[in-house]
């Protein structure tokens, strides 16, 4: 079973009360309250206080609460982590992660904050954003730097600039980085999250990119506008045909297990463990997408 879906992670500017008050109504899998790039240096304290109060006061339902703090090389990181951990954040997203040491340093801050706020040790998880060629080359090392890591994410804007290129509709400039990140994530047993798609008027472009990263193996995508959520979820939603097939596989596996068989066959094809796992994942995704599995004919 999938512990948690992260098909869509919605960025919410941490300095905007109107946006902070109820972004969960759009149904993203995760909310990323941003204290970093969307907040001007003079507004850092105000944003931190706003997000702190929001996390304390507002019931965001079952939606995961992530905060993008300022980078390890800033003077704000200590206060950011202390405040967010105390407010009850689920995941700290660290921008501009370059090496495993960055994660270890962040872990130190989180441990102290957990202790100070009385939260149980290890409760707060980490997501690392990789934004440079060096970070991408260190992807696996970063991914295994701490058991707190739930995923690594590509952040493309800085990356393409460092690569002395620009973003294209086809995304060829990101192909290597995406490939490395998703492979490192899989090797480490954590999630891979793709970068944002910034052209809000281009739904087709977003769909194209979402289909691409889904096919590459990514678990989801950061999004910057609620209108992108249903589109991304639509791409990740299994088709009725996939659901039908997966239901039969899972049922056959259960039956084989009951009869003490290790390997089974369905329609003359051998069904082994990875196929059963994939089928179970499809059904999880279908449920999470609000599809009624029982209504899809077996």
């Amino acid at each position: 079973m999938i512990a948690k879906l992260r098909r869509s992670m919605l960025f919410v500017p941490g300095n905007n009360p109107a946006l902070v008050k109820d972004p969960h109504i759009y149904g993203p899998d995760s909310l990323i309250f941003d204290l970093e790039d969307s907040v001007a240096p003079t507004e850092k304290d105000a944003a931190r206080l706003l997000v702190f109060c929001a996390l304390k006061a507002i019931d965001y339902g079952r939606v995961e609460k992530v905060v993008r703090v300022n980078g390890m090389d800033t003077t704000w990181i200590g206060d950011d982590v202390a405040a967010m951990v105390a407010a009850g954040v689920d995941v700290i997203r660290l921008p501009k992660t370059e090496r495993a040491e960055d994660i270890r340093a962040l872990v130190g801050l989180i441990e102290a904050a957990e202790k100070a706020s009385g939260r149980s040790a290890g409760e707060v998880r980490i997501m690392a954003a990789l934004e440079s060629p060096l970070a991408v080359l260190n992807a696996y090392e970063i991914a295994v730097a701490s058991p707190r890591l739930v995923g690594i994410a590509l952040s493309a804007e800085d990356f393409v600039t460092s690569m002395k290129t620009t973003r294209s509709p086809e995304g060829v400039e990101l192909f290597e980085a995406r490939g490395r990140i998703v492979m490192a994530a899989r090797a480490a047993g954590i999630m891979a999250i793709d970068t944002v798609f910034t052209d809000l008027s281009d739904d087709e472009g977003l769909l194209r990119e979402a289909r691409l990263i889904k096919q590459m193996g990514f678990d989801g995508k950061s999004v910057i506008n609620p209108s992108q959520i249903p589109l991304v979820h639509g791409v990740f939603a299994p088709t009725p045909e996939e659901i039908r097939k997966s239901r039969r596989i899972v049922a056959a596996a259960a039956e084989a297990e009951a009869r003490g068989l290790g390997v089974m066959a369905l329609d003359g094809k051998m069904i082994d463990k990875p196929i059963v796992e994939r089928a179970a994942r499809v059904l999880d995704l279908a449920r999470a997408s609000g599809m009624k599995i029982e209504e899809v004919e077996a």
Binding site: I25, Y26, L200, N225, P226, S227, P230
Partner: peptide, 11 residues
């Protein structure tokens, strides 16, 4: 409208 809240209400 392009306001996501209004679009949500519309859906």
């Amino acid at each position: 409208s392009r306001d996501p809240r209004e679009l949500l209400i519309a859906r």
